[in-house]
Amino acid sequence: MKEVEETEEGFYSFSSQDSRELSEDDLQKLAKQTIVTDFKRNKLEIEARKNWDKFYHRNRENFFKDRHWSAEDLKIICPDIDFEQEIKYLEAGCGVGNMMFPLVAELPNLKLFAFDFSENAVKLLAERASELGLKVATSVVDLSIPSISSPFEEKVDLATLIFVLSAIHPDKHKVAAENMRNLVKIGGTIVVRDYGVNDHAMIRFGRDARLGDRFYVRQDGTRAFYFELEELSEMFEAVGFKCVSKEYLHRITINHKKNLKVPRIFVQARFVRES
């Protein structure tokens, strides 16, 4: 997928099978990062849902912008899917629907399903869907808890996980992948995009923000994990998916006025359920 970076001064982008190499300055910043106490790590895990509910209560639908790149790029990453036919589509970790609503505006044959960890997010999404006259099956779901059943009556053809897995404790990533398997039909697709190792945001965390290897807490209590591409593909392959494509997405935002180049790194992959 090609993502549009909205910046005043401009950007450029490319994809590769490797993340970026760190500079000496980056390495020094990483060396200064300190791991938080066990007490804080445990507290953040216990309060994960509460922190996301607070986030959506505070920001409502104003924090994230709609992802208007999604329809064109889904067609590119899934060229074998006929979007002229009815497609059962799930936005997993939907937030307030910033991917789903622009997507259905361009692909009206989608049958919509959505869930999120945050009850507040799902409520906001349902309100917007009602205002737009859209029918969306919604649920509050915690992907990190083992489950053998789906909250929906049907398995979907296509699901997206956009910056979702990174918010889950890395010890529970495989559980999340297993749960996604229960939601997608055999032959169905999951498209993942998330934060990649050595992303600028990972480097700029200061002291008392590191929870573990590539795992951090933001000031609002929400968390972010930064993936290596291989571990992402191995995780889904271990639970019955085939990796069709995978890449690091390099987005370098350029601000000429401030003479800044900010290297953003994301992982992106498509997985098809085989068993």
Rank of each mutant, 00 (worst) to 15 (best):
A176Q: 04
G240P: 08
D208S: 12
K50N: 03
K135S: 15
D18N: 15
H57M: 04
I190S: 01
E45W: 04
L132H: 12
E106V: 01
V136S: 10
D18F: 14
S147L: 03
F215Q: 03
G212L: 00
A177W: 05
L132A: 10
F115Y: 14
R223T: 15
I254H: 10
G196I: 00
S118W: 09
D18T: 14
S19H: 08
L134Y: 12
T37H: 05
C243H: 08
R181Q: 06
L22H: 06
K75I: 00
R204P: 00
R58C: 00
A238L: 09
K174T: 10
L165F: 10
L134V: 09
R270T: 15
V191W: 06
D199A: 00
A114K: 10
Y12K: 07
L74P: 03
K258P: 00
N98A: 02
R214C: 12
S15R: 13
E84R: 06
F241K: 08
E234G: 02
I77K: 05
D25W: 07
S70A: 10
K185V: 03
A114M: 08
T222S: 09
V122R: 08
V197L: 05
D194S: 05
G188L: 04
A48C: 03
E91K: 04
I148M: 12
A159Y: 08
V239F: 07
N255L: 07
A31I: 06
A105S: 14
I76G: 03
K65G: 01
K88S: 00
K88V: 00
Y56R: 01
R60L: 10
P263E: 03
R214Y: 10
L27P: 01
S19C: 07
T138M: 04
P151C: 13
L112A: 09
